[in-house]
Design a binder for these strands. Structure first.
Lengths: 236, 236
DNA sequence: AAACTTAGTGTAATTAATACACATAGCCAA
DNA sequence: TTGGCTATGTGTATTAATTACACTAAGTTT
């Protein structure tokens, strides 16, 4: 078996979320329909076939890096999609013919997800990604393959997860206000909370610790800044 | 492509739980090491390669039926295992050579799980399952492949799920006592609860409804019987 | 009739969840 | 410099959920 032989039947797709202080965003790549003149851009999640000699986790990390330039992202498996028809729509096949040795092969895909603060990373798309873009989750158009379903599942995963772990310290700046944190929870859970009750609940945890600093240069009473204390969290 | 062509790279494995009134049990099949004389029985989860033209969900249901005779079991996807070395241990390879066209092919496997009341189903093992047996989860020996990891993950899945859904109405008789229900929760969560607090919490839900019947022929005060009311549950 | 076994029950104390309104700090514009 | 703007920050009362804890009752067995 040659090194880095490709497994034609298994791919990984990555659903990377970020937060712009108001809404959740997701990272998409732009592909162009392979065999047409018109630049028929269809967006998709970053994903590709795995190599025979790598784990699924490694494949996800590699593929994400190859397509978007994001490195050292901690990815978590979400779900596996295996409808035999999932890649056989005409415009998906057109595009696959331009990049794959066996575009018609049955491909099941393992979805991975992560949360990142997009300010901390540069996008440098390459391989078959013409471009990599952040899109508001609420504005995501029809994607290639079954990627809308995959996105949906990753969102569900995220909603469940936020009940268990204090997510979103990945998504926020190191120093953040409680209003920012509340907006993030509201964006993920697609809900609204009472400010006083939210603050009480957050501060009860005691791993969100106040810094003795305030926001600067805002046209209103400046908010106090807080940080997430990882060691306090893990010793719970 | 021939009908029912096998996809050599993707399998499904099923983790089927039942409950014997004291402990959780899991359904295993027995295989014999293919190329040796001694009947070297290794147990494994029921699982096999998928067909090219079926969904993963259908593959799981089909494979379960083929190996154990269980039909119409509602299976739920848990996790996908894809270590390149997961089937390459010697005794696993020995066995695969006896049943597979390409025993050395890289196989990733999608794990499914379900809960059933074993009293309601007959096991009729066939295909390469010499036998199908229920084993107490706590007594499960070293299994073939990475099946101990898969079982572990399915157990985690179950523990999370019981917080969300009132599981285990699958696992109990139609009419059950609150003590049976409590034992089931204790078995799944590997914990002990206070009887009064447990009863209060269960009865608060109001879809566990009392029948006006009591246990018969037990050598102590007979317990009242209850049933799970699906329609009351779903209208919540 | 006494012994055995599991069923069934109540209360008090603590903690969490919910609903709700107003004074305050800093900036900006008139 | 004053008044207006905007988002911050705070407390209380009510209700619901959680926890801890011990004895009597019903039926069977000996």
């Amino acid at each position: 078996m040659p090194q880095h032989a490709i497994n034609p039947n298994v791919s990984v797709d990555c659903v990377i979320f970020s937060f712009n202080n108001h809404e959740l965003e997701v990272l998409l790549i732009e592909r162009s329909a392979g065999n047409t003149d018109k630049v028929d851009e269809i967006k998709a999640l970053p994903g590709n076939l795995i190599y025979e000699d790598e784990t699924l986790d490694c494949a996800a990390e590699r593929v994400l890096t190859e397509l978007t330039g994001l490195e050292n992202i901690f990815l978590e498996q979400v779900y596996t999609f295996g409808d035999p028809e999932r890649i056989s729509k005409k415009h998906d096949q057109d595009w696959l013919r331009s990049i794959r040795a066996h575009p018609e092969a049955r491909v099941i895909t393992v979805a991975y997800t992560s949360l990142i603060n997009k300010e901390r990373f540069n996008l440098t798309p390459s391989s078959f990604a013409r471009n990599a873009v952040w899109m508001k989750v609420k504005n995501v158009p029809q994607l290639g393959f079954d990627h809308n379903d995959i996105l949906e599942k990753a969102l569900d995963h995220l909603k469940h997860k936020i009940y268990i772990e204090p997510l979103g310290y990945e998504l926020l700046p190191d120093r953040f206000t409680l209003a920012q944190l509340q907006k993030l929870y509201e964006a993920i859970l697609d809900d609204k909370f009472d400010k006083r009750n939210f603050r009480r609940k957050i501060l009860r945890t005691s791993f969100i610790v106040p810094l003795n600093e305030k926001q600067q240069g805002v046209a209103h009473k400046p908010a106090g800044l807080y940080r997430f204390d990882k060691s306090l969290f893990h010793q719970m």
